[in-house]
């Protein structure tokens, strides 16, 4: 017997939730309990009274599973609203990464040149290294990190994705 796997689609989900104890565990645990995937998850409170947080989840799965994920999130008591940014018209998504690169001579100059192309900022430096700060869609960061890998990549920290719909209205 073989276990069949289905082809997956990437979706960015944006949630507003009550900022209460255990909410993150509730959401992360629902994903593990039901066998769904989390590619990235970001969370921070977004109102002055700290009552509401926005959680952005990048997940992947067949369309039917994505529908279930949204329905399962929506029925958690502290969840206000779930929006599938990928299905909800144009949207902006951004991720921030810190990329540490070590090298001297021509490698060091090439790293700076590439950083300039990618509009990455230098936020720390020694004679032999840089830390670059880069923001953009995840694939831009993937590309930058890939290039740095050929020069002298030491390590990377990434925030995961945040996103909002384009235009004047909220989601």
């Amino acid at each position: 017997m073989h276990i069949q796997e289905e082809t997956n689609q990437r979706h960015v989900l944006s949630l507003t939730v009550a900022n209460e104890a255990g909410i993150l565990a509730r959401i992360a645990g629902m994903f593990t309990a039901r066998g769904y995937n989390i590619d990235s998850l970001t969370v921070a409170d977004i109102t002055p009274d700290h009552a509401i947080s926005r959680i952005t989840i990048v997940t992947n799965g067949p369309p039917k599973v994505i529908d279930q994920i949204i329905a399962q999130l929506d029925r958690l008591v502290p969840v206000h609203k779930v929006t599938d940014l990928s299905e909800n018209g144009p949207y902006v998504e951004r991720e921030l990464a810190l990329v540490k690169v070590a090298g001297t001579g021509e490698d060091r100059i090439e790293a700076l040149r590439l950083a300039d192309v990618f509009r990455a900022k230098v936020v720390d430096t020694t004679i032999e290294s840089f830390i670059f700060e880069i923001t953009g869609p995840s694939d831009k960061i993937d590309t930058f990190v890939g290039l740095m890998g050929q020069i002298g990549l030491v390590e990377v920290g990434r925030t995961g994705v945040v996103g909002l719909v384009r235009g004047k209205d909220p989601v």
């Binding site: 104890a21 255990g22 629902m30 008591v77 502290p78």
Partner: peptide, 14 residues
Amino acid sequence: TVGLTRHCTKHNYL
């Protein structure tokens, strides 16, 4: 208890 029952309750509180 809230951790153990988080996924077998409709909702829970500490």
